[in-house]
Design a protein around this nucleic acid. Structure first.
Lengths: 215, 215
DNA sequence: CACGGAACTAAGCGCCCGCTCACCTCTAGG
DNA sequence: CCTAGAGGTGAGCGGGCGCTTAGTTCCGTG
């Protein structure tokens, strides 16, 4: 399934933390999807009308159905791409070189930075999951479990290496992920803190939670 | 540590933690409100119909409008009572005797226990805020700010007393509240942990976040 | 027992929703 | 220059929504 990963121009890693939705084509489909992200984030999935989405994208209500089967199909695509991106951020940080402390701090910093800077997308991805129908939700939940497992393994590594002191590893992993995800709910671009600052603060807080020795 | 959790045989403490909605009268109004809490928590405010609420309460759709002006009025009352209860829990813990460490741990334990055991109510209270119209939201947001201030003050007290080591007090207070609130999103009655266990785990995690010396 | 008012219901109004369909408009290839 | 087909539109459908209204049931009081 990862075979048709089109290697754009250079073989170099295209990790665009920036969620440009470049993989969504054609252009009109991408504009609709971005409009949907904004609308879902502002008003919630159920309170958003297909007319609202279409008009944000500068199109007629009917145009939506040329590119997407239903309104829920739009949410599914947003949710899938977003969860894949969030998981990728965690997995990449976990796979890097360094001590468990460095890797966990790096993962939290990147993960939080994404949830802050792309907080509209993250809000839809993390909080509109229940609006997905029964047939699509399991696929997304599977991605979430992999995120959870990635964090749990990093913490376990730190415990084994003697870097962390954690009485309840699964519970702590759950709390760490929950803490990071909730950034998408309260983060405000108009607010005082930049995504970088929140990422740094949260990395420090998480290292404290796992009992890492902070310099 | 602070295992001196006094039994409440003293008639003073009437905290009820149990959200029985006893203050809502008459009986039919309370049944409707409880039905609305369940429906809003399961499906979200916008996806819930007034017919659904009424039928859960065993009444006709029109009965709702005898006790509530609109569907939004229901959400407002739930939100107001819930936020007042959450704030009360924090304020009471903050006002108790003891060191800053004990008071903060106590506050987190009670607050999290409430968000877990009453997670349906808490989910509506904490996550359906945006569904409130512009004219009612400020009232609720004011309550939230008081919760935030209460936590911030407890942390400040601990820093002044030399019990805590916190570089960024407002940021840490925000993160602590965010962490606790998010319990309402993921907590599941069918899950492995009881509200008491989650409360104890989170109290420990928060003490680590503020750099309290944990025995 | 008559009766006023509170609690509740059956029926349904008007609106707007997700979605469809007949039709139009570009543009690339022969 | 013609045409096929993809992309787009205006109009509107069936239906379910929040909410209303006219009328019924129930009950405490004089």
């Amino acid at each position: 399934m990862s075979a048709e990963r089109q290697a754009d121009n250079e073989g170099v890693e295209r990790v665009t933390d920036d969620m440009s939705w470049a993989e969504v084509t054609p252009d009109a489909a991408r504009r609709l999807l971005i409009a949907a992200v904004e609308a879902f984030a502002e008003r919630g999935y159920h309170a958003t009308t297909t007319r609202d989405i279409a008009s944000r994208a500068g199109m007629s209500p009917a145009a939506l159905y040329i590119h997407y089967r239903t309104k829920e199909d739009l949410l599914l695509r947003i949710s899938r791409i977003g969860h894949e991106k969030a998981l990728e951020i965690l997995v990449e940080a976990a796979a890097r070189e360094g001590t468990a402390t460095e890797r966990l701090a790096d993962a939290v910093r990147s993960f939080v930075r994404w949830h802050a800077s792309r907080h509209l997308t993250a809000r839809v991805v993390q909080y509109e999951l229940d609006s997905l129908g029964e047939e699509h939700r399991p696929e997304i939940i599977a991605l979430r479990r992999r995120s959870d497992a990635t964090v749990r393994e990093m913490i376990n590594d730190g415990v084994k290496a003697g870097e962390f002191d954690v009485p309840d590893v699964p519970g702590t992993a759950l709390a760490v992920l929950s803490l990071c995800i909730d950034v998408a709910r309260w983060f405000n671009t108009e607010g005082r803190r930049t995504p970088d600052e929140v990422g740094a603060l949260y990395a420090d807080l998480v290292l404290r939670m796992v009992g890492a020795r902070v310099p």
